[in-house]
């Protein structure tokens, strides 16, 4: 019995070491080449400045939900940044596949799960950079926190979750097609999902097919969860659907990535 227990704990420790090494390698790459993070940081900053500037008068329409456009758009821009961060994490693997490093990684003994977990953790950690950037710029523009500091926690949880989900989805595609170019598929998918949600206006502003699509889009629930502390107090009824949506997206994308990784390694 004791021998079995020792084996399990050793396996777990080894898996943890592999995952943290992969995550650490990604973060060290950012430190070594800061230009890698620039697009991930710049795009959401452009979004928050453009959307708040261009659509500022949306707050004058009755029922918008806030009189401060930064309180609506900041979360949306941060989520866009998280999608970029997630896809960027998967792109690192595409680069590794193209230059042969990934084949060496697959020669290591043990489970493949830590490879997925490590890359996902790297993406989640990476997403904190655009999220922080967007929140700082929005704070300069007048962002308020009616829900208190917990509002910030929900944004970081939501963006880390979105980055994880899109990283795993990106990995599923990368493991299947083995090229950097395939990442454009996920980029388009992420961009479209964000636009087809309540990113810029509340659900009751929409009509026709967009209303139907946005209502069933899981990103809408994640946005509702992440945005609640910027519009008022945090409530459980706004929280749990967002967490379920995030969990479901990570689970589905994770299953796809694991399946494709098993095929690749076989």
């Amino acid at each position: 019995m004791s021998a079995v227990t020792v084996d399990h704990s050793t396996d777990l420790r080894f898996a943890g070491m592999v995952a943290s090494a992969i995550c650490g390698r990604g973060m060290r790459r950012i430190v070594a080449r800061p230009t890698l993070i620039m697009p991930v940081l710049l795009m959401p900053l452009i979004f928050v400045v453009s959307f708040t500037g261009a659509f500022g008068s949306l707050t004058r329409v009755e029922g918008y939900g806030t009189d401060n456009v930064f309180n609506w758009m900041a979360v949306y821009a941060a989520m866009q940044g998280a999608v970029f961060a997630g896809v960027g994490g998967a792109s690192t693997t595409a680069e590794d596949i193209e230059n042969g490093f990934f084949d060496r990684l697959l020669l290591t003994p043990g489970s493949r799960v830590p490879i997925l977990v490590g890359t996902m953790a790297y993406s989640a950690l990476r997403s904190t950079i655009p999220t922080t950037g967007v929140l700082l710029v929005s704070a300069l523009g007048g962002l308020r926190l009616p829900g208190g500091p917990l509002a910030l926690v929900t944004v970081y949880v939501a963006t880390a979750g979105m980055a994880s989900a899109f990283c795993l989805l990106g990995l599923a595609v990368v493991y299947r097609f083995r090229t950097m170019r395939s990442m454009i598929l996920i980029q388009v998918c992420g961009f479209s999902l964000m636009f087809l949600s309540t990113g810029q206006v509340p659900l009751h502003f929409m009509n026709g097919w967009l209303h139907t699509v946005a209502r069933v889009n899981p990103v809408t629930n994640v946005l509702r969860f992440a945005r609640q502390g910027f519009l008022g107090d945090l409530t459980w009824s706004m929280t749990w659907p967002g967490l379920v949506a995030l969990g479901a997206m990570v689970a589905v994308a994770g299953s796809l990535a694991a399946h494709q990784l098993r095929r690749l390694a076989a």
Partner: peptide, 24 residues
């Protein structure tokens, strides 16, 4: 990104008379 930003920071998606401040 320069082209993308130029389009968003124009009257492309919203009239400038409904914008305000430095963005306008």
């Amino acid at each position: 990104p320069l082209v993308f930003t130029s389009i968003f920071m124009s009257s492309a998606f919203f009239p400038t008379n409904l914008m305000s401040g430095w963005f306008r």
